[in-house]
Simulated scan of single mutants.
Amino acid sequence: MNVKALLLCLLPLSASAQGFAGLGGDADGFSIPQPDPQFSFPADHGAHPDYRIEWWYVTANLTGPDGTPYGLQWTLFRSALAPQTQEGWDDPQLWMGHAAVTTPDAHYVAERLARGGIGQAGVTATPFSAWIDDWLFDGIDSGTLRATGADFAYDMQLTAQGPLVAQGIDGYSVKSASGQASYYYSQPFYEVAGTLTLPDGPVAVTGTAWLDREWSSQPLADNQTGWDWFSLNFDDGARMMGFRLRQTDGENYTSATWIAPDGTPTPYADGALTATPLEESQVGPRTVPTTWRVELPAQGVDVTVAAVNTQAWMDTSVPYWEGPVTIDGTRSGVGYLEMTGYE
């Protein structure tokens, strides 16, 4: 799921205090995801300008030579003022990039904004390349992941060790009881190696990464205020994606996908996943849950998910929390947690 829809901050919408107003609004002439999608690759790795919202979203759990854990994020968001493209500054496609590095003691963040049609940002499907300024992600199967900020930089090589995974029902991911949905697939099987450049110098790292690809035009219902999203990478080779969408009536809408070590997905509809906050942290002026109990009884999952750094706040145009986590309980491992709507 992820904070992908945050790119709507680029649109002339009147945002609520949480920054999510408009996500449940009219699709305004844009295409709407329909059940039984038929993905076509490599074309669907590229942009879908007839949909309002889209993202290419990579998170990575990394380890340095001394065993220190690190987290890495690289995201390119596309948002459209109209369902079309054209050359020059009048192009209605808008782009935003987020990059971050998380250590146990620090969280470094950078943001880039761009207008479509002038070459500053974009995505090509063949050969695959996603970029904004000098930030680059250029390989679905294998390639480079690169970004720079005021206090950090990274240059990684990613190699997929498993297949692409359709989220939801064959890639149709339902987000609410009233039927809002997106097209959604992932590559959760990357191996990663490269260099983080931090204020104290370069660090050679290795680890795993997860790509999420999603596009939609109306991703939330009008009674939903934010989400808590988990990508969990278990030590036995299985993976799990799960999210809960918080509603104004105090209820939650949930979804999960169990991913076997060979990449076979098993989707779970609303109610199968339970995510319960266990501990909260003061993050600036806000209180954010940073330790969770996550349960998927159908797969014997009952785990505690804890932030590596509770202060992993993305102080960007629309702020949110995102950072690496550890997993303990019926299974162990590492993963990523994203939480929106806590501003």
Rank of each mutant, 00 (worst) to 15 (best):
T126L: 12
K175H: 11
Y184C: 00
G207Y: 04
T208K: 15
D228Y: 03
D212G: 11
E111T: 04
P188S: 11
A221L: 02
A193Y: 11
A181C: 11
A147S: 00
L198T: 07
Q120N: 11
L158T: 06
A150C: 07
L145T: 00
R146T: 01
D228M: 05
A221W: 03
V165Q: 09
A125T: 02
P199W: 12
G168K: 14
S231N: 15
A114E: 11
I118H: 05
G207D: 03
A166N: 15
A150Y: 07
E191T: 12
G226F: 00
L232G: 12
D134A: 13
D134M: 11
P188K: 03
P219E: 05
Y154P: 01
L158M: 14
L164I: 07
S129Y: 09
T197L: 10
S182H: 04
Y184T: 09
G116F: 01
Y185L: 07
G143D: 01
W131R: 06
G117D: 02
Q161E: 15
W210T: 08
F137S: 11
A130W: 09
I169N: 15
L211Q: 11
V205T: 03
Q161D: 15
T144L: 02
L220W: 15
D141N: 14
F128I: 00
V174H: 11
A114V: 05
Q120T: 13
G139Q: 05
S176A: 12
A153V: 00
Q157R: 14
F137H: 10
Q167S: 08
F189A: 05
W227D: 14
G149D: 03
Y184H: 02
D200H: 10
F189Q: 06
G143K: 03
A153M: 00
K175S: 13
Q218N: 13
L211I: 02
G122A: 02
S129F: 08
S176F: 01
W135S: 02
S176D: 04
A121C: 07
G226K: 00
P199M: 04
T159Y: 08
D170I: 07
P188D: 03
A130S: 10
L211R: 00
W131L: 03
A193G: 13
